[in-house]
């Protein structure tokens, strides 16, 4: 499976919402990404999978406007764009929920939700933030994707990891994101909370968003994903529709296949050694 697999067209024959063409990123002599081509369609969950060091984080930063590619093009709705900052990307409807969430824990849910886009009562400088409206909208936007917020004025720091992730997603969806980039949204979460976040990903997809879901956990990515792009050592190892690839195949490619078998054999050997001894009392 080392050679590039045939790209299978997704169900939608529409224009990709976002596309990378031949994108490379170099940091000095380090080639973090080489010649990456990716197409993401509306109403599609596109999973970027790869082990640590595969280039996932760099790729997200290119998609979200934090880094500019050394080579290649970014297209949004078929038009070539240049992101000078994450703000530029947002203006074009490309919203990113970073792993550290971009939430300010000492500020309230509403203040975080509207940060940078506060609704004011008039256009004068130093006019009041319309707090009532902001609270109502924030609560409603979160209710829309199925989160019940007890009190939108409570500090974000009081929320659980899953809730914070949900607020970040709700914020991105509310402010008109058409491409939603989620960087490891489930990695730090418990089972229940991860399930909640996966549900929001499905909700976002059903609303016609293009979702780019970065993960190294195949058990989270496989159930919700429509398309899988596998990254390894800065290169695209192939893009597959779900129907064309099984979970085990994905795992195998992600971990570099051979490596995993070697690790398994090693573990089996260890277990065989320990196996003769009785387990410790429960």
């Amino acid at each position: 499976m080392t050679e590039r697999a045939q790209m299978s067209e997704p169900a939608q024959m529409t224009e990709p919402a976002m596309e990378l063409r031949g994108v490379s990123v170099n940091f000095g002599s380090v080639r973090a990404l080489q010649d990456i081509d990716i197409k993401v369609y509306p109403g599609e969950v596109h999973c970027l999978l790869g082990d640590n060091g595969a280039g996932k984080s760099t790729l997200i930063k290119v998609l979200s406007g934090v880094y500019r590619p050394s080579k290649g093009e970014i297209l949004v709705d078929g038009k070539t764009v240049t992101f000078r900052s994450p703000r530029d990307a947002q203006e074009l409807g490309v919203a990113t929920v970073f792993q550290d969430l971009g939430m300010i824990s000492l500020m309230s849910i509403t203040r975080n939700f509207f940060l940078g886009r506060e609704p004011t009562k008039s256009s004068l400088p130093f006019s009041r933030i319309d707090k009532e409206r902001a609270n109502t909208i924030a609560r409603q936007a979160m209710a829309d994707i199925g989160i019940d917020v007890r009190d939108p004025t409570q500090a974000v720091g009081t929320l659980s990891g899953g809730e914070r992730q949900s607020v970040a997603i709700a914020r991105a969806v509310h402010f008109g994101a058409r491409v939603l980039i989620l960087d490891e949204p489930t990695s730090a979460l418990g089972v229940h909370q991860a399930a909640m976040v996966l549900k929001f990903i499905i909700e976002a997809r059903m609303r016609g968003l293009a979702v780019i879901f970065i993960s190294h956990n195949i058990h989270h990515a496989y159930p919700v994903g429509d398309t899988f792009t596998l990254l390894n050592r800065g290169r695209n190892r192939g893009t597959y529709a779900k129907s064309d690839i099984s979970r085990d195949e994905v795992i195998s490619i992600m971990s570099g296949g051979e490596d995993l078998k070697a690790v398994e054999a090693e573990i089996a050997g260890l277990l065989a050694q320990i196996g003769s001894r009785p387990p410790a009392a429960p």
Binding site: S85, T96, I104, M107, L115
Partner: peptide, 26 residues
């Protein structure tokens, strides 16, 4: 200004988490 306005919200955000604030366009 600090508690009621947009600019006040930005002051809290700038000190609370500079990168996060910059990423959302503050």
């Amino acid at each position: 200004v600090l508690t009621q306005t947009k600019y006040g919200n930005w002051i809290f955000a700038t000190g609370g988490d500079l990168i996060a604030a910059r990423n959302v366009g503050v």
